[in-house]
Design a binder for these strands. Sequence first.
DNA 1: AGATAAGCGAGACGGTACGTCGCGTCTTTCA
DNA 2: TGAAAGACGCGACGTACCGTCTCGCTTATCT
Lengths: 192, 192, 192, 192
Amino acid sequence: MPAREHTGRRRNEAARRAVLDATSRILHDEGPGALTVGHIADTAGVGRQTIYRWWPGRAAIVLETATDLATREVPMPDTGTVDGDLRAFVTDTFTAAGGRARPLLRGMVAAALEDTDVAAGLARFTARRRAVLADMLQRHDVVDVADAAPLAELVYGTLWYRVLITDGPLDADAADALTDLLLRIVDPQHGG
Amino acid sequence: MPAREHTGRRRNEAARRAVLDATSRILHDEGPGALTVGHIADTAGVGRQTIYRWWPGRAAIVLETATDLATREVPMPDTGTVDGDLRAFVTDTFTAAGGRARPLLRGMVAAALEDTDVAAGLARFTARRRAVLADMLQRHDVVDVADAAPLAELVYGTLWYRVLITDGPLDADAADALTDLLLRIVDPQHGG
Amino acid sequence: MPAREHTGRRRNEAARRAVLDATSRILHDEGPGALTVGHIADTAGVGRQTIYRWWPGRAAIVLETATDLATREVPMPDTGTVDGDLRAFVTDTFTAAGGRARPLLRGMVAAALEDTDVAAGLARFTARRRAVLADMLQRHDVVDVADAAPLAELVYGTLWYRVLITDGPLDADAADALTDLLLRIVDPQHGG
Amino acid sequence: MPAREHTGRRRNEAARRAVLDATSRILHDEGPGALTVGHIADTAGVGRQTIYRWWPGRAAIVLETATDLATREVPMPDTGTVDGDLRAFVTDTFTAAGGRARPLLRGMVAAALEDTDVAAGLARFTARRRAVLADMLQRHDVVDVADAAPLAELVYGTLWYRVLITDGPLDADAADALTDLLLRIVDPQHGG
DNA sequence: AGATAAGCGAGACGGTACGTCGCGTCTTTCA
DNA sequence: TGAAAGACGCGACGTACCGTCTCGCTTATCT
């Protein structure tokens, strides 16, 4: 009586999900030190070889786990104003990153720091996120095209800084405070 | 004729320096993957036990190496204007972090991500750096007390984001661009 | 092209043999001081973990090596007389122990002296050897049952004494001399 | 307040005794695995360097400890008969070796097996003991000169065999049994 | 329908780094 | 000035993971 149906000579999608879930769960519950390939395999109920068949190593698993999760979190807001859109986006982003995803983000950077391929993947992933935010900003004429990218970098710089360095708060209040600050760049009268 | 004088029953300061230097050199020349305790010991010409006698593990060595180095880099500027002081400080900080110290900073975060004690040390270290910058900003009346800390966080957030995530530029130009952006918060007319 | 065929998830018997052979060779060629687990592993072309997977430590390897070897050395003689059988057995035993096996026997005792489990194994091994000799003696009526065991002990006592303490000769002459002495116990007229 | 008076520039005899006593006590109470130079030094209340000033290493300490002890144990009997003298000598020797000295003897062989100098010392020591017994036997005309040495070897062979291999009994009964056996060699009528 | 092929859980394998322990040497400090 | 204290360079210990491999099985696809 197998715990998971065999799929014969086709890749077993359930096994893939089990690996990603196990990775996420281990990082959250037991910390990054417990994230070994063997432990992932055992937790997922999967053979180690199955992991190496589909991922080049532990780092790649973390990257895929994190990107899989992060992509389907932050929707694109449309409130009609820069203020509203930016505030909504930053709030969504911060609360997502500050919650259950936080250990995953930390794990992703740890993986990137010891694997250049993963570092490249992380760079690509974050570039995509910044582009989304920059696009949103440019929809509003008040923001110069030249300003959009730097502003996006300030948002994500603050986010990662708190995730990685200070373990600082990433909630609605933090998002509001940062939004206020950024709006004083976008619209100088704002902070008046 | 020993390569290094014994100091009898006192800690050998030369051995400590050799370990920190070896750590810095390995991170810079061979990358983080080569930073094993055994390799540090060999490079420093030191027994492994000597390392474990004084440091709890590899992570702690990296932390000490980085803090040792980083503390004696950025001097306190005094040009008389916010613009001048901030620009000078950010430029010094960025060029320091963007040069030889970059692999060390990356190593420090890698170490912090796998050791809570080191994470606390890193948090303390970075808090000290932010405080220095915030103090500087507050010397100028144009900056509200409440604004100083957030501004400092934007500076270091950007710095670490580029070091860790995007491997982005950290030079005088990058410092200028960021300074311009921040001055639009400090002094709304500036960006006018 | 691997130097040794993998056997998948079954124990690799070739690796086991390589370890035992390496142990024997090291003890003989380089002495007991060179018998470290790492050196055995390197000589056998085996990972250290493979050794620890199957043996609790160096001592157990030596025990297995020695018993493996010693068991298939001394055949059971059958000349028809006590004199002939005893002489043949002692000669075979002495020449075996006095030749290439000598460093192995010394190593086995060294191992037993630092590991109680190995000591028990050694006791069992030697008891078996004594029993073989005692059985042989009892096949001849001239020897009382009560005498067989003590006589066997005299043989092996002498053997081990020379191996461990005096490094004395263990050859055909030594075997003859001891046999003569023992026969004066078995058959008082003999020495007359 | 030192536990032991310093003696200035002369060797401190009390320290030597403390080391030998500590060695004996550790071997007896904690087993051979606990016999490290550091532990001897601590137990003796002596600096490690003091040990290395007077002994070449751990093995030499064990050798000296054991010879020191063993030499002043077995007196020379004189009952007037071979039977009486031999029985008394073997009994004294066995009970001495079978009691508190047993771990010391085992330690001495362990030391000899890893140090050729100690092995030579042990060979010398045991040769001396055999000579004492052989001399005693030769005082009685019934024993041929040629027989004395082999007989002595049988006695000590049995002793060490039980100490090192079988952990067999070494008491008055064991001594009696062996003596009876040997007397059948010395005097063929004896075993009638 | 039987043969074949690929994925799977399992676990042994050759390696490498870990952190600890003991060795024998060295210098300082104390009495 | 000998001895305690203890740091040092060295190297073996036993453990934990890594990434590779073979095994014995299951299921889908191809003849």
